[in-house]
Design a protein around this nucleic acid. Structure first.
Lengths: 124, 124
DNA sequence: TGCTTGTATTATACTATATAATACAGACTA
DNA sequence: TAGTCTGTATTATATAGTATAATACAAGCA
């Protein structure tokens, strides 16, 4: 698990952890069914309190990205079980980002590049 | 100025104000050169402290969206002066949102709809 | 001068974030 | 059964962000 945490950032540490796990899942650096480091191990690696990791894992669990098993620890959710969840809040967040991008002159072409980078070439 | 503020939201009020002004700018409900309500007026309308409005306006000023003039109050920045600003942080935020969208099964077609809604039909 | 503008100041209150040290419940394994 | 690994709960503490309140000030303008 390679996580780059900025302790100077205004973004809370547990949020940074949560975001980077989602990014890793999208780029398939973390695969469904795969185990994450234990709370204590990741806390040690990053140099933060175990409860901060616990908070990040629980956030991801509540959002449906992780399954937490007392025997094995945290595990990436199966792909099928993640789909068809509520996405309205994502659309709203997207509208805000796109509004800023439009106002700052980001072109449609640049947007397409980012979409291609995340989504790949599939045609749905 | 129609602003819908949620006092129960975990998003700070000044952030909500900032976000909605950007959304209004993107949909051209607020036009370059247009004046915003005064700090005191908007505070009265929404029912918050004037310093909360001040914080939102200053955030927008620092981001380049507003010009604050002691004579006339806050004014929407000219379109030309907003372009060519740094947009790396927007791309990063976009990557995160798109990662979540991908994992939750949002299709490319749905993304296109949102882009069309914000950007319109221009072809850049 | 008197009115408006944004801004600064000080104090207070509440909440979120993060840490620390400990302890506990459940499940595996030797 | 005892030991050891999971995640989790608890309590206390510290710091920072958010928001309010009341007041005051500087700048610009009629």
């Amino acid at each position: 698990m390679l996580l780059k945490i900025s302790f100077e950032s205004p973004t809370p540490i547990y949020q940074q952890i949560r975001d980077q796990i989602i990014l890793a899942m999208a780029k398939e650096a973390l695969l469904p069914g795969e185990n994450l480091p234990t709370v204590r191990q990741l806390a040690k690696d990053i140099g933060v309190n175990p409860m901060t990791i616990n908070k990040a894992y629980n956030l991801l669990k509540d959002e449906g990205y992780l399954v937490i098993d007392r025997r094995q620890g945290a595990r990436i959710q199966d792909a099928g079980l993640l789909k068809n969840e509520k996405t309205e809040y994502l659309i709203e967040a997207l509208e805000l980002i796109l509004s800023e991008a439009k106002l700052k002159g980001v072109t449609k072409e640049e947007l397409s590049k980012v979409i291609l980078r995340i989504y790949g070439k599939r045609r749905d």
